[in-house]
Amino acid sequence: MPPALTPEDHSAVLRVHIGHRPPRPNVSYVDQLVGEDQEGIAFSYFTGLLRNYDVDVVHVHHPCALLGGKTDGDPLPKNDLVLSALALRVVHNLRKNRTALVQTVHGKDHCGTGRWRRILERATDAYITLDAEMKTPAPDRTVHIPHAHYRERFLGYPVAEQIPGRVLCISPHRLAAVCAAPLRVFELTSTAGLSLRVAGGPDPAVSSLIDRADAGTQEKISSRLELLSDAAMVEEISEAELVLLPAIETLADESMLFMALSLERPVLVQDSPAVQSLRREVGPGWIHTHAGPLTAERIDSVMDALQSSPAEQPPQFIGRDMDVVAQQYAALYRAASRRRR
């Protein structure tokens, strides 16, 4: 972990430039970086090619953001020679301004590879992982900061009454990835009173899947295809008896996982070492997994387990309070800035 803060660390404003959109009403990874009350730190945000180096720390969660690339789509379209030149310019400007570079490593990486990537890796002062299973290019410069839970975030939000037998597919960005398999196999389930709810961003592919599945399930499928606010997601999750999630590949996927657990709703998610680690942390009855393609039999077996042996206590979160997590980011920023200067 970064060194403990000293009194002089609080004497000046630390300027942190984040390659992420500013905080908004919907939960996002950036909320954990900014926190509710971080005195002495000024945050700013950038998209496109990094141009502002007059800061103490630059923090990105995909390295291609530094070169103006998209973090959730195709790799950077330029050739490696051009990208390497851009990366060398970024590194030169970072060093010239004694600005530290911090990267979060998480899930699926859409940035691609090449010499440009190695240039940025060598220049990175600290890596952050959200789960202990994630590997980075430099273990000696890596700090594990867990994803925060959202219990306090949703205090005061209206919570709906749980609907027995409701299975929910929900995702703000990857709805097709989570609902395609359940929609195909739902009519094969045998659990009495089971219903399937699909909620998330509108997608023509999802609409056609729902139409085809609904024809054979006697109105046991309902949907809410729109961009969901946090309040709408809280409503949908709290109505569910089981929440189906896609493989945890993006920060948005992980946010949905912690939203469901924070609202004390069990989840069914594709297995992975990180998911198994969290499963041990939160305790029995909350995280259920499937190793291969989702099947009707697996949905039935999980529903049987939930209805016959519900969890005996709420999910247990270790070191995941939002304020604690934000303080760890603040400490890392200060330590990285001190080393660079």
Score class of each variant (00 low, 15 high):
G292H: 12
E236M: 08
S255F: 06
E241Y: 05
I41V: 15
L33S: 06
T142L: 05
S229Q: 08
T142M: 03
Q32L: 14
V143C: 05
S84M: 09
Y127T: 06
S195P: 06
S171D: 12
D125I: 09
R151F: 08
T99N: 01
T289W: 03
A215W: 10
P204V: 01
L294W: 10
E254L: 10
K135E: 15
V325A: 02
P310A: 12
F258R: 04
L263Q: 00
D300C: 07
L33I: 15
R298I: 12
R197E: 04
A192G: 08
G193K: 08
R115V: 15
Q327M: 13
W286L: 03
R320G: 04
P310Q: 13
L257G: 00
S190K: 13
G35I: 09
L294C: 11
R51W: 07
E297C: 10
A87D: 04
H288K: 07
S223E: 05
P164H: 10
L101M: 05
V167K: 01
M256C: 08
Q103T: 15
M322D: 06
P2A: 12
V16G: 01
V324F: 05
R21K: 13
S28A: 15
W116T: 14
I163K: 11
L94W: 02
L175D: 00
R117V: 03
D74R: 12
Q313L: 08
V167L: 14
L251P: 01
D80F: 05
C111F: 00
P3Y: 06
A335Y: 01
G48R: 02
V90S: 01
T124R: 03
P3G: 08
R279Y: 02
G69R: 01
S208M: 14
E161N: 12
G68P: 02
S190H: 10
E239D: 10
I248N: 01
H173S: 13
V282W: 00
D214W: 11
V234M: 02
R166E: 07
G48V: 13
